[in-house]
Amino acid sequence: MNQGDMPVGETPPPYEGPSRATQSWSDSGQKVVQTQSHVTIQPGMQPGQNYDPRIRSQYANEPGVIHTTRPYNPVVGEPSAEAMRRHQESRERYPFLNLSAGEYVILEVHRHPIGMLAQIFISIIAIILLLSLMILYPSIAETVVEADMPSQAVVVPAILGLCGIIAVISYIAAWVYMRNTFFLTNESVIQELQFSLLSHKEQTVSLGSIEDVSYRRQGLLQVMFDYGSIRLSTEGEESTYRFHYVASPKQQTAILSNAVEAFKNGRPVDD
């Protein structure tokens, strides 16, 4: 019956979605047809990867779908005393991190110092050349008689100033390099990216959103000095996060993988 054909004052029955028909035969030989709505069926449990796998199912009027309810005001569990103690320690040690209640830092990973070798080597060579020029300048000035050479009182402060500028630039480059860090907490991975003195970026990924953790180590130097890159891939938009020049990447990847597995299975994330 269409809604327009119903008597005035009566409301149509609620729509229960598509139904599934089952046929059976009674003892008298008559065919019995029973219908069952897909939407109104709610199984007790389904396999999945979340605390309650039923929540991961999509809403759709299709066979096998699962509907679940969520409270308007969900009950938030209180963190344990140990978690709050470690949370307070992490807040004091890392005041720049945005940690939620009960969240604490488990692992702190810095870049391997080998990534600064090229910058340090170039700076040292430049300073040595400038100091050699300052020492040899009197002899050079005596040799070149016809040229109008500046006095040593002008050249020495200029060379020392250049050496100071190179040293400051090298220090800033090393500071920016070492500021690139990522932290593993009992709830997420926080990546601190420092591009320059005035350029900073922070990325936070929940452990529940991480699908794959892998590392890559290639080349003679990376094998000899045990460093490489770590890759995190997340579900949804398939975002990928990379962290380069990681010391002991195999060990760090194992810790990250164990933390993700423990978080998804509802177990405590330990060190």
Rank of each mutant, 00 (worst) to 15 (best):
N50R: 09
P53R: 03
H112A: 06
S90Y: 08
Q42D: 07
I122G: 06
S139K: 13
T69C: 01
L99N: 09
L97N: 00
A126F: 01
V75L: 07
G44Y: 07
I114S: 15
S26H: 02
R86N: 07
H38A: 11
F121P: 01
R86L: 10
D148G: 03
E82F: 12
S80I: 05
I106T: 03
Y137V: 04
P47Y: 05
P43F: 12
H67S: 14
I140G: 00
R56F: 04
P74E: 06
Q119K: 13
G44D: 09
T69N: 04
I125E: 08
T40W: 00
G44M: 14
V109Q: 12
I124N: 01
S57I: 09
W25A: 05
R70F: 07
L136R: 02
W25S: 07
P74F: 09
I106M: 04
L107Q: 11
Q58Y: 03
S57L: 12
A60D: 12
I140K: 10
T68W: 05
E92Q: 10
I128M: 10
P95H: 08
E92I: 05
V145K: 09
L136I: 09
L117K: 12
F96C: 08
M84W: 04
S90K: 05
Q58F: 02
I127N: 04
V75P: 07
A60P: 11
Q36S: 11
R56M: 07
V76D: 10
R54K: 11
L130C: 01
V76L: 15
E146D: 14
E82I: 03
Y137Q: 09
I41N: 15
F96V: 13
I106F: 01
M45I: 02
E78G: 08
D52F: 11
